[in-house]
Amino acid sequence: MTAQANGAASASYYGRPVVKPHVWTPMIPWYFWIGGMAGAASVQCVAARVRGEHDLAVVYKRAALAGAMTAPVLLIADLGVPARFMNMLRVFKPTSPMSVGSWILSAFGAAVTASTLAELLGWERTSRALEVVTASFGPGLTVYTAVLIADTATPVWHEAYDTLPFLFAASGVGGAGAIGSAFAPADQTAFARRLMIAGAFGVPIVGHLMEKRLGRFMAEPYRTGKAGSFRRVAEFLSLAGGAIGLLGGKNRTALRGAAVCVAASGVFERFAVSAAGTQSAKDPKYVVQPQRERVDEREPASVDT
């Protein structure tokens, strides 16, 4: 007595979604990119200091500050009740990646702001120490958003939890590298350029790995529709930016062109992931089919004849 509704491979209730797609506005994918970039920039800032490239370090520091200032604005704008944004810090809940992330972002923002103030006051050692503090929250800021979306019932997000953090990390490294490449003084671009190129090639490589691990069926939402289009644009920009960065050498114009490509590719990648999540939640087969297979494997006797 199995109802194979509408001839689909798995039964459904009039093809209606089983889980709800996320209800976040475009503020959130933008935040994913900006937060990811800022987090990676803070790490690159400290690395630049170690290399003695202080002008480059300042570029990264400004990028981290700009990210930390913009992020809350985007996040608050997305809330249903923006006036209650402070409730985000009402509790610390380890079971909620958004709670953990809110604290990471707050600590990051406080540290980079304090470091900048110390810098303006001329307290160099304090300022540098606070840069290190900022950088200690940076990697967390870059990758927590991947855990945040993976920790949902959205099929292509949850199933990709073992690769999404690497995708976001690669994109963050590329984004920060791009900012560094574009704004550093001409004699301090080598380090940033390397990271920009690493990110530019890293993102499509991790992306393909993710698709492979998801398998043909589960990777579909990443390949089709709006998500597929966004990803193709992201991939093109990534490879173009990487190639220009590689071949252009230290040419400023080439570097800046590459930086624009890599940064834009990161934004498209985040929008692609967001759209893929929506697509996979809207089509019940991505929810039902894997679960049905699990059940049938556990209790083959229940399979109807």
Binding site: V19, G80, R90, W157
Partner: peptide
């Protein structure tokens, strides 16, 4: 208390 972050919806 809810500030409408929407996280519970896809969860």
């Amino acid at each position: 208390v809810c500030n409408g972050c929407g996280y519970c919806v896809p969860a």
